[in-house]
Nucleic acid binder design. Structure first.
Lengths: 387, 387
DNA sequence: CACACTTCCTTCCTACGGCGAACGAATTAT
DNA sequence: ATAATTCGTTCGCCGTAGGAAGGAAGTGTG
């Protein structure tokens, strides 16, 4: 095999510094979208002389596109450069119980291609054929693949996703990486949602946030200092296991808290309050019922109180500053969110803002894009010597 | 003032790459302690030709000391270089109710000088005279100051330390920085303990840990991915506020959990179990009593159960993998720690190791040293372009 | 003891990249 | 038209990285 022992290369080799400059320019262009070389010198600190050949390369590689001359009030007009998000594509694969959904996105998170495949045969095979197929002639631009798996993706075997035939998170990622030759990240779907909201949703303006996702279970994704934190065993955010009431008991893989306050648990109660079929959106249904029915209103209060204690617990441990409600929790109406906020503010040791997540289903995709893009840039992280 | 707007300098200026190489060599030398230039080429990847002048500089500056030739089985013996920890000194200042204790340490955490001063007059004045005085002729080597303050050091005004006359954490740090001209870090003492145990105590082998400090209040220090995490408002680790029992109530600045399970709360109960003066170490006393007294044993069980639920809560949110017991919690005997471990393992969603912290009083100092050293190296962190 | 051999460190030298400076280009103001 | 102004490029200097060669200081072998 090509199992060459990596020779400890110089920390400041020429290629590295070149790569740093490239990324410096690309990152500036990604933010500003359309700019001139003159603006690049201001933003990156690189001299015009350095930029000339660098920009030439980037245009040749498709990262930048030359547009016409821009406006000028005096002097030579600036030749505008437009950032081309399609120069780097990423694949986001979401594993669901009976199918996988696969999307190719540009580096803005814009979906270039999309497909849903039924889960037949080997997952790795499926991914490794679907992704190149979808990417088509854009394949050379593929920079990374992010795979979202339900449940804990590594360690903490409790809630590992058996539904999709995952025995272990790792092998899939590694196999796909070898077959496709690009960085692959496998993670919990909730973590990806948190990353997505941080990158492109309700958390772009903060460095720390906690996304609380209520579904059949309850999980949280944690972003601290701009990075998703998974904890030592990848089980960070398993807030469904919080022991917030001595009376609650979990059972085989279900935590004590989520046993009572997850979407499914709420659904049961809602059915008992308003007999009939299990509603599609139990929380929304409960909010509706609560307007007219005192018992429903009382139960909604209970739910909000329970969730608020969950949020306060997280605030005590990590102080995320902002909590995003996702999944069933995002179905609360404004009044309910306000009450939740009030409950949290009353008990949390530091200001904690509660609001709904905004990306919904697309959060995972955006998270995957952000993962894949940062995985592509991760080569840089080995640049600095360990302190 | 010299309030020059920092010109956006090139991300790869010459000084920077030079600095990177220097730090690369220093960091290798710090780890290996005694090594030759040949080893340095292997460790850093720098070419011998690059190393020669660099090492010359470092010797001149005192970072490295030339020792005699080392052993050689064939060929020219390697000229050994020894890392000199005293080339960089840091000051660790710990603010206590009525006094400040001030220590000068080398970069190994070895104490070079030590003094305790009564708290008279302005704190900043006190620090800015004591530190240079202690450092003496080593002052040029002073690389940073870390100040440990009880309570929350910024934001979350609830438990800000009024006892030491701190109005706000920030001004002190900034004032000292301006007067002494070196980086200054001000932080919660518990955070510093966590950093200390991570750098030199019971957490050197892991990247994540949580230090649980039980005293008059209960606080935790959180290290994730090798860094102390303070959360958005600096209130991460305020676990005394965890709402783990609906019956518990906190009051003015005291959290509901710590109101019942802190060292002071336990002390009261111990006094009622064994009338007399409040024991010096209530937890140790309780452990002792429990051996003979059934009521005490039962209460000890309660304490362990409560603490275990606290630890489990932290495990659910951040999955630290290892929890270190500090302060009064470190007074548990082995049997009690084992029982605590068992309770935690039964309820935590992922493996969580419970053990005692090992540095005791010296944890803050080691934490301060590690802070100050990384603050000195922090100039590097601005090197990479934001992704 | 002389000689080869090995390993380590240094010095010399070359190539290359960053950036200052001068220059050409393209437009507005007068 | 001409000046003024701003942009972008080319030129060339300088400093640094690192290859190559050579000196230095030992060990093994005839």
């Amino acid at each position: 095999m090509t199992d060459v022992v990596t020779p400890p290369t110089s920390p400041v080799s020429r290629e590295r510094s070149k790569e740093i400059k490239r990324l410096s320019v690309i990152s500036a262009a990604r933010q500003v979208r359309v700019l001139s070389r003159a603006e690049l010198t201001e933003l990156t600190g690189l001299s015009p002389a350095t930029l000339t050949p660098l920009v030439r390369d980037l245009i040749a590689e498709g990262y930048l596109i030359e547009r016409g001359p821009g406006a000028s009030r005096a002097g030579r007009p600036r030749a505008m450069l437009e950032f081309n998000p399609r120069a780097e594509l990423v694949a986001a694969v979401s594993l669901e119980p009976a199918r996988i959904s696969c999307e190719i996105a540009d580096s803005d998170g814009g979906v270039v291609a999309h497909r849903t495949v039924r889960l037949i045969g080997d997952i790795v095979d499926l991914i490794c054929t679907a992704v190149p197929d979808l990417a088509g002639d854009g394949l050379p631009a593929l920079r990374g693949v992010a795979i979202a798996a339900p449940g804990v993706s590594s360690g903490g075997a409790v809630r590992l996703a058996p539904s999709v035939g995952l025995v272990e998170g790792r092998p899939i990622g590694e196999s796909v990486r070898q077959r496709l030759g690009v960085p692959v990240v496998v993670d919990n779907d909730v973590n990806l949602m948190a990353a997505g909201e941080h990158a492109a949703g309700a958390g772009t303006d903060v460095a720390d946030l906690l996304l609380l996702h209520v579904a059949d279970g309850i999980g949280a994704g944690l972003v601290l200092d701009g990075q998703v934190r998974r904890g030592s065993g990848g089980a960070a955010g398993e807030v469904g296991f919080l022991p917030l009431d001595p009376a609650d008991r979990g059972h085989d893989g279900i935590g004590p808290f989520e046993a009572r306050w997850s979407e499914s648990a709420i659904a049961e109660k809602v059915v008992s309050l308003a007999p009939g079929r299990r509603p599609e959106s139990p929380v929304r249904a409960l909010v509706g019922l609560a307007a007219a029915d005192d018992l429903a209103a009382a139960y909604l209060d209970e739910v909000l109180a329970a969730w608020s204690r969950l949020i306060v617990s997280c605030a005590c441990v990590v102080d995320p500053g902002r909590v995003l409600l996702s999944g069933a929790a995002a179905e609360l109406d404004d009044a309910a969110v306000d009450r939740l906020q009030a409950l949290v503010s009353a008990a949390a040791p530091s200001p904690t803002e509660v609001r709904r997540a905004v990306l919904g289903d697309r959060a995972v995709l955006h998270g995957a894009v952000s993962y894949a893009l940062s995985a592509a840039a991760a080569g840089l992280s080995t640049l600095l010597p360990a302190p």
